[in-house]
């Protein structure tokens, strides 16, 4: 059970933070379908940074510092990359879906092109060492705290610093969106930019802010994803995580609480598909593998999260409400 919850947390964190990233862009009125691409780009730059900085002995000896710096780099890279989207969507009033699709194609192309030119491989691996079976071990940034008891070890054993940072960021940015003046202005630009402009809010600036924060969070999320879920391998793909985050954002009704709930549910179901045959319950001193004994194929468990999201959407769709002005380029003259 502890193992299951630990794994759930690992799957949930990138989804949580990237779905929040999507929320920031869409509440400001820009559809950010490029989340996937920004994640890939952030992950790629973060991995390149981490691999290079490790050549300096001091950083190699302080893996946690390196980890934090790499996350920061990934966030900055994501923010810069998202400027491409902002420029085309805000300044040139281009179709936001097209720009997002282009970014989704651009990021893996850039990442794979440079990875292959410089390493002659299709991926970057960040593990320091490999064990005898060729599995990657020892990243230097996994926190081990054995013997804490069940609840303690869910949060603090085999954990990553990124988990705490991500949760903290999620709370801070949720509060920022709802309790500050700037947050209110961003939301106003997503609902009715002309009205916002009439009371002196600079719509262009607010939309740039929204997408840039979105890009930074998505880049950060991308690096967290490759550092935790894929065992430190940047391969120019994040298995459609960005699109899933987008789905969770819609699922969560463009609100932080809904997003957190959706990410937890989805993360739990998704990790169930990965580790279902390792789950055991101790009954009378004997390990009983409940799900494994059902003899259903892995594909069945893999499918559950997607079916569950569809089912929930089917029942809750009437309440769903997207930001009114999302996807519409701001035109000062229109009503």
């Amino acid at each position: 059970m502890v193992f299951l919850l630990q794994k759930t947390l690992i799957f949930t964190v990138p989804l949580l933070i990237v779905a929040l990233a999507g929320m920031y862009a869409e509440r400001s009125g820009i559809i950010n379908i490029a989340l996937d691409g920004i994640m890939i780009f952030g992950a790629f730059i973060g991995a390149v940074f981490a691999l290079n900085i490790r050549n300096i002995p001091w950083f190699a000896e302080h893996p946690q510092t390196t980890f934090i710096l790499a996350m920061l780099t990934a966030a900055i890279a994501g923010a810069i990359f998202s400027l491409l989207l902002s420029f085309s969507a805000i300044n040139l009033k281009a179709d936001q879906t097209i720009a997002g699709t282009a970014l989704n194609m651009l990021a893996p192309a850039i990442a794979l092109f440079f990875i292959k030119v410089f390493t002659n491989q299709d991926k970057l691996e960040m593990a320091i060492a490999k064990d005898s079976q060729g599995n990657m071990v020892d990243f230097g940034y996994v926190i081990h705290n054995e013997g804490l008891g069940s609840i303690g070890s869910i949060l603090f054993d085999r954990a990553y610093l990124s988990t705490y940072i991500a949760i903290a960021l999620f709370i801070v940015f949720s509060i920022f969106m709802y309790k500050t003046k700037t947050g209110l202005r961003i939301r106003a630009c997503g609902e009715h930019p002309q009205a916002a402009n009439s009371v002196g809010i600079n719509v262009t600036k607010m939309r740039y802010l929204g997408t840039t924060v979105s890009g930074a969070l998505a880049g950060f999320g991308g690096y967290v994803y490759i550092a935790t879920v894929t065992n430190g391998t940047a391969s120019g793909a994040v298995e459609g995580m960005g699109f899933l985050a987008l789905a969770i954002m819609i699922f969560g009704n463009w609100k932080p609480f809904g997003i957190a709930l959706g990410a937890l549910l989805f993360g739990f179901l998704k990790c169930l598909g990965v580790i279902y045959n390792q789950l055991s319950v101790n009954i009378g001193g004997e390990d009983v593998y409940l799900l494994k004994s059902l003899n259903l194929p892995m594909y069945f468990y893999n499918m559950i999260p997607y079916v569950a999201v569809l089912a929930v959407l089917a029942f809750t769709s009437k309440k769903s409400r997207a930001p009114k002005a999302e996807g519409i380029p701001y035109d000062k003259g229109s009503r």
Partner: peptide, 23 residues
């Protein structure tokens, strides 16, 4: 989903993609 329930087609498409892949 889009016409009867009003669910955003993008999210349903993404979900059905992965369901199809698993099926």
């Amino acid at each position: 989903f889009k016409s009867l329930l009003g669910v955003n087609e993008v999210i349903v498409c993404i979900m059905t993609n992965w369901i199809a892949a698993n099926i």
